[in-house]
């Protein structure tokens, strides 16, 4: 318990609140790297997942869809730390190799949830939409996407939380952000610094979780919430 109290005292030291190793700067760094990785993940995985789910018709599309889901599930087995270290050891540039594993690990939940979310939309719902004269694009944006939104948001949330925690691990190979406190504290055997970093990472992960809960309330139609709330 004393150790934890020490960590809390660490937050009170004025040195923690200014300069490049200060908390505000580290939080900003962490948010920047995580945000960048999340943005790229979403840009790659979301359109692909939605499109694959939408095109479901035909043998080729379903085989491709199955392959994507299998590959994405397989990606769960990739060890984060090993990937980050290998990327850094094998390449010269600094930021890209560290962000790359973050993105690779965050793509699966976004891709799979977008794909299954759209693919699981009841066939009669699509039938009604088309029968009323919606074009393919209108069916996707006006019906399939909003109906799949709860699952899509869960995938995005999983990815975001995962990126925030993987970014902390990536401090081991030199990435800035909150993981610095954890890694540097461990190296210097200063538990209060390490624990302070851990508390900040947990707080950030919860903040991301809370942000998505808010987004869910704002974006998901009340007509759908009822059925998913069980």
């Amino acid at each position: 318990m004393n150790a934890i109290l020490e960590a809390l005292r660490w937050f009170g030291e004025p040195a923690q609140w200014s300069g490049p190793d200060g908390i505000p700067h580290r939080v900003a760094e962490h948010l920047l790297y995580s945000g960048l990785a999340f943005l790229i993940t979403v840009l790659v995985a979301l359109p692909l997942g939605l499109l694959l789910g939408h095109v479901r018709r035909g043998r080729a599309a379903s085989v491709l869809g199955f392959a994507v889901v299998a590959a994405a599930n397989g990606a769960r087995a990739l060890p984060t730390l090993g990937l980050v270290i290998l990327a850094v050891i094998l390449t010269a540039s600094e930021l890209v190799p560290i962000l790359l594993p973050l993105i690779v690990l965050a793509i699966p939940p976004v891709l799979v949830n977008a794909y299954t979310g759209v693919q699981q939309v009841e066939p009669w719902l699509r039938d009604a939409a088309e029968g009323m004269g919606m074009t393919g694009r209108q069916v996707l944006w006006r019906v399939e996407f909003p109906v799949a939104l709860p699952l899509v948001l869960l995938g995005l949330r999983t990815a975001a939380v995962q990126i925030v925690s993987t970014a902390a691990i990536a401090a081991f190979v030199g990435l800035g952000g909150l993981g610095r406190y954890i890694i540097d504290g461990l190296a210097r055997q200063e538990y209060d610094t390490t624990a302070g970093g851990a508390i900040l990472v947990i707080a950030l992960a919860f903040a991301v979780q809370a942000a998505f809960a808010l987004l869910y309330r704002l974006a998901v139609s009340p007509g759908l919430r009822r059925s998913t709330a069980s």
Binding site: M1, N2, A3, I4, V161, V164, S165, A168, I169, G179, I182, Y191, T194, A195, G197, A198, I199, V201, I202, A205, F206, V208, Q209
Partner: peptide
């Protein structure tokens, strides 16, 4: 359980050390 799921593993390791 959702909160537990969101806990970053490395941070929990650290908090358990003492």
């Amino acid at each position: 359980t959702n909160a537990l799921y969101a806990l970053p593993a490395i941070a929990v390791f650290i908090m358990l050390i003492p």
